[in-house]
Computed example of a mutant assay.
Amino acid sequence: MITATRYRALAEINRQAKLGAEIARAQTEISTGKRIQVASDDPIASARVSVIRNAQADQTVWARNIQSAKSIAAEVDTALSGVSDIFNRVKELTLAGASESVSSNDRAAMVQELASLRTALTNLSTSTTPTGQSLFPTDAPLLVSTSATQRLPATAQRSTVFEGISYAHGSDTLDWVIGSAIDAIATDDVTARRAAANTAISDIDKAIGHVTNQYAAQGVRAAQLDSAAESMESASIQLSEERSKLEDTDVASTVMSLNAKTLSLQAAQMAFAKVNRNTLFDLLS
């Protein structure tokens, strides 16, 4: 009789200890916000969380790459806009300089402005980012990793943007056509100046068309980076949601379970205390 009673008491103590451990575990889950404390809590979910964690680490790097590339692409866009403005002004000056009524002093001022525009073009072609990276690299642009399978450029090679334009005399640079305009405006003979200016204007139009195409190509690169950023954000949200479902505590459910187990433990402790107030003589009677 006594042995059986002792066994029941020990079993009850163990049951209460288990309840206490479960309550402590629930409190930990609520305070940390994490359902999985160690891998053994849920090996399958823990393994998946590990995979997701690695993927999120990769995404952090790719997101940083995309933001850097987008910053460069925006600077390139601004530079190309400046190049476009330069050639629009070059055309205006060349048209004005071809006129018979323009004075030699005015033409000299136009030549001076054209030379200034030529210098501005050179500065744009060799411009750099705040970190010293060339906006228009002399070699092939660096391809930026934006995912495990995708690598994108933020800009174009310098020669692609500023060289290889087809003019009347053949292939040449953007710089050359401004020099051609300067030579035309500097010509004193009106007939020769007009003929040279007309040829220069035709070439300037070709340069403007080339710059427009390069501007559009840069827009495509920027759009690709924007698309990569959107895909990255979408994938990041999906991974975060999946990880949360696997790893995070369901607070409402855990609080309900905690309250129920706390009440059960309190009731068991009260009953156990009441039963064990009996003396040995009470048990023998």
Rank of each mutant, 00 (worst) to 15 (best):
V102I: 07
T126V: 05
E242G: 03
A45N: 13
G219A: 07
G97S: 02
N65D: 00
L19D: 10
N213D: 10
L152G: 05
R53V: 02
E163A: 12
S257L: 15
K18V: 08
S234H: 12
A55P: 03
A21K: 12
S159N: 11
S240L: 02
T119I: 06
K274S: 06
A17M: 10
E12A: 15
S99N: 14
R277I: 09
G97K: 02
A55Y: 03
V38H: 04
G170H: 04
A168V: 12
A140P: 07
N213I: 13
A252G: 14
L93A: 07
A17P: 07
T160L: 15
T138P: 08
S147W: 00
R35T: 04
D139H: 09
H169P: 15
A268I: 01
K91P: 08
I208R: 12
R8Y: 12
L117I: 06
V90N: 00
A140T: 15
A260V: 13
A197I: 01
D41L: 07
V161F: 07
Q224Y: 10
A39F: 12
Q37H: 05
T191H: 11
A17W: 08
D41N: 13
S134E: 13
F87W: 04
I36G: 00
T155L: 13
A268Q: 03
E113V: 05
M110V: 06
A181Q: 06
V51I: 15
Q112A: 14
A154D: 04
G219E: 04
A55L: 09
G33V: 02
A4S: 13
V83R: 03
E12W: 15
R277S: 14
N198S: 09
E242R: 02
A26W: 05
G219R: 06
D77Q: 10
S159D: 09
T129K: 07
M232Q: 14
L280Y: 01
R277A: 11
S134H: 13
I72W: 11
R118A: 10
A63M: 00
N123M: 07
Q266K: 04
V51F: 15
E92K: 13
M256P: 13
R53P: 01
Q112H: 09
P153S: 06
N14L: 13
S234Q: 14
A140E: 09
S236A: 08
